[in-house]
Design a binder for these strands. Structure first.
Lengths: 116, 116
DNA sequence: CAGACATAGTACGACAGACGTAGTACGCCA
DNA sequence: TGGCGTACTACGTCTGTCGTACTATGTCTG
């Protein structure tokens, strides 16, 4: 099975993270698992990549962090959650449009297999 | 019109260059123009990016350089041409397969517009 | 009871590819 | 004469990714 080198995805990690946060706020480890799940195990974001994306995107105001209980029943332990902002939504929309163009352009160069 | 930031394409610049060399040997400036043309002006590779890709890919033995006349009629001026190697062809094939998976994975995250 | 594994991160430094800027050199055209 | 197209080269910077390592807690298992 072809495994994706994450360098390929460079430039789209932020968008992937935001796509998850579009549904509902989440946190580091959770997002990491969701990415693995949604991609059928084909893509596993590195922890360092993920957390540095959080820092960057919070600085850019695409996301906001807040703390909440790990366990709703409350064992006292907290987690850092992230929530997408309006600016984040706008950015996400732009990147989705950009993706369409990018895909088209790359496919003009790259050999495509028919009927699959 | 959406313009592609080349960072998005990072990881596929080499493949795009190779796709052009699959057809016939070419040289820096020529490849640059072909990329602009094939992409309908949507992607313009930076000179520095292009030439550093040549260096890297020659080191990796994906391409070979040779010099030839700029003008077949011969004004004496030479250009550096590049030709894809067998290793380059193999690499290109691998990247094309990888692209299929990459595209699928990214599109599992990114909102897709229907019927366009 | 020890060790592995899952959860949930933080810190630090290295690397590679892309990019900005600049410079060379030649020919052509206005 | 100066700008533009052609055809590069050199050098340094930036950014996102990644490797490595460390902390801390809880659960499961042999």
């Amino acid at each position: 099975m072809v495994e994706i080198s994450s360098d390929v995805i460079r430039g789209y990690n932020d968008t992937i993270i935001l796509s998850i946060l579009m549904k509902e706020p989440s946190y580091g480890y959770g997002i990491s698992r969701q990415i693995k799940e949604i991609s059928d195990g084909k893509y596993a974001i590195k922890e360092t990549t993920l957390y540095s994306a959080f820092t960057r995107m919070e600085k850019n105001r695409y996301i906001e962090s807040f703390t909440a209980d790990e366990d709703p029943k409350g064992n006292g332990k907290k987690r850092t959650y992230y929530r997408i902002t309006d600016e984040g939504r706008t950015y996400y929309g732009t990147k989705c449009e950009e993706w369409d163009v990018t895909r088209e352009v790359i496919e003009k160069f790259i050999a495509q297999k028919e009927g699959e």
